[in-house]
Every structure is written in structure tokens, then in C-alpha cells.
Write a protein that binds this DNA or RNA. Sequence first.
DNA 1: CCTCAGATATGCT
DNA 2: GCATATCTGAGGG
Length: 212
Amino acid sequence: MNPVSPPPDPRLRFEPDALRLREFPRAFYRGDTTEIARALVGAWFARRFDSQWYGARLVETEAYLGIQDAAAHSYRGRRTPRVEPMYMDGGHLYVYFVYGMHHCANIVSRVAGIAEAVLLRAAEDPAAAHPKLLSGPGRFCAALGLTKAFSGEDLLDGGDLRLFRSGGSRPQIGVTPRIGVDYAGEARDWPLRFFDRDSAAVSGPARLRRKE
DNA sequence: CCTCAGATATGCT
DNA sequence: GCATATCTGAGGG
């Protein structure tokens, strides 16, 4: 399945059971992609490795709206081996390699055949003690040891990857255009980036960490 | 805050 | 073959 994936950073060790976290049901992932991106801020992403759990609390996400979105890999219905997981049912993972050295992880949304997804841009370690550890999509994947080997994995099949609803109160959400999509024409300005305004782990320049 | 190099899988011609 | 990319770290102002 994922024979040679790097291990997660030990600082991410946590106990999902102790926190009484509950998983999102399949129906959640099949909903509106933009709403899902917003709802995932505050959720916990978790990976089991060597029978231990490692996790992070998401603090920054972006919605990618498929066929109509020039910033999405599935723009105009593009369907290649790399992008194939985006066409899966909601609740799968899409991981790709970019800029010759980084991986980025997305949660696939909507139903099979509709290729939309939510990019996981930043998160906090369980103790919120290392704000740079998962600050940015490349760092997020590096800290959790996520590579292309995980692309296409189901988050709801009882395997090593899971996503849990946040237990506590709703974070205060900020909204801005997405980062790194200047090539995408008018889609460049769509307000599809969501982040926790109170988190130190949000990526990007400060002006993009306070907006409204 | 901004600019730029780095390294290469991927997709298109 | 060739241009590009859902990024990051270093260096300058």
C-alpha cells in the first residue's frame, strides 16, 4: 500500500480516542467543496504508523472547484493518472509532487466523477508548540510523511489515514484568495482560502493571516 | 516585506 | 523535447 513512506514527526504523537474525536461521515465529503474547506479548519488529520497515532489540527485550507476552476488540476476536465484520485468519491486523499521537491495533500470532495478537492495548507501539532512544523502544504506533508504513495487512499475505510471533526468551539475563520495560483486568470481572485485567525501556524505573509 | 534559486515529475506539442 | 508547477528557504531592503 505505502511500503516506503517516511515516518511522521514524533512531535505529532497523540491519542484520538482520548480526545473522543469523531470521524466525518461519507455524506459530509460529498457536499459543497467550499463549505467543506471552511468546515475543515479546526478538524484533525491523523495517520497511524507502527500502531501509533500521529495527528495535526488543520488551520488553513483551500477549495479547488474542478472543471470551471483554472487553478485546479482537473480544470476543463483534465484526467490523467496523477489527477485520477480527484475523480474518486468524496473522502479520498489526493497527493501530488510539485516544484521538484514538495508534496501537497488534498481531501477529495463531491461524488465520484466530479473532480473537486480541498488543499490542506497548514496545521498545528497536538501541543501547538511548533508553529512552523506544519505551516504550508509542503511542510504539512513532510511532517506527516505523506507522499504520492498515499494518493487515492480512502479516509473512511478504517485504514491508516483519518479525519476527525473538531471537538471544541469553532475557530474564527478568515477568508482570502488562494496562494500560488497567480496563473489562474480570474480564478486567481476567488475567495477560497480559509484559515484560523487565531493560529500562529497559518502560512503566508502576515497580511494574509488577518484578513476578513 | 519582496525576489530568486532550487529540482524534477508531469503534461502538452 | 520543453515549459511549468496548489512550494520553501535564503538573502536583501
